[in-house]
Amino acid sequence: MARKLLLFHLLCFCCLLSTQATGQISDLIIIGKDTFMLQTCPIEHDSILSKQVSEHLSQEDFCTACWRGYQATWQIEDDKLILRKIEDSKSLFAYPDTLPEITVDLNGIFNQYQDKRGRIVASWFSGELKVVSGEQIYYVHMGFNREYENETDYQVEQGRIISKTSYRNSIKKGTSIKDAMKLVKTQFNRDYFPELANTKVVISCAVLPKADGSINSIEVQIIRPDSMMEERKNLYIERICEILKKVPQWDVLTVRNKIRKTERWTLSVLP
Rank of each mutant, 00 (worst) to 15 (best):
D46E: 08
R119P: 02
L208E: 12
I76T: 09
N257Y: 06
E149S: 07
P225F: 04
S170H: 08
F193Q: 11
E219R: 12
I109R: 04
E157V: 07
E60H: 12
E230I: 06
K182D: 10
I161E: 01
L38Y: 03
L208G: 08
D191R: 11
Y236V: 01
F36K: 07
Y236F: 13
M37I: 02
T73K: 13
R84C: 13
Q187N: 14
E242T: 01
E87H: 03
F36A: 08
C205S: 13
Q59G: 05
A65F: 08
N107I: 14
D27W: 00
R239S: 08
E60D: 14
C66Q: 12
K51R: 14
G23A: 14
F193H: 04
T152V: 15
G32E: 08
I222P: 08
P225V: 04
D78E: 13
G174V: 02
V104A: 05
L57W: 01
S268G: 04
S214N: 05
L38C: 07
S166A: 09
Y138Q: 00
L235F: 11
L196I: 06
M229T: 07
K185I: 07
S204H: 01
V247I: 12
P225C: 05
G23H: 12
K116C: 09
S47C: 10
K233R: 13
G118A: 03
T64R: 15
T186I: 09
N150A: 14
V252M: 12
N150G: 04
E242Y: 02
E230T: 11
I218K: 10
V207L: 01
R3T: 15
D88F: 00
S163K: 09
V132D: 05
M228G: 09
Q249L: 11
I162W: 15
K182W: 06
D226M: 02
R119G: 03
I171S: 09
M228P: 04
D88H: 00
I120P: 04
M142A: 14
V184F: 11
V104L: 02
I161T: 01
G143H: 03
L17G: 08
T266S: 14
A72G: 00
G32K: 05
L38V: 03
P271R: 02
Q71S: 10
T103V: 00
S54W: 00
F13Y: 10
T152Y: 14
L83V: 01
P42F: 05
S133F: 00
N107C: 13
E44H: 05
T35P: 04
I171W: 14
L83C: 02
G69P: 00
T73C: 11
N145G: 02
Y95H: 15
R84L: 15
Y148C: 00
L17P: 00
V131T: 02
S58E: 05
R146F: 15
K185Y: 01
Y236E: 01
L16A: 07
A211Y: 10
K172D: 14
N150D: 12
Y167Q: 06
T152Q: 14
P248H: 09
S227P: 00
K185H: 03
K246V: 10
L99E: 12
I43E: 03
S214E: 06
K246I: 09
Q112W: 01
D27N: 08
D153P: 01
L196F: 09
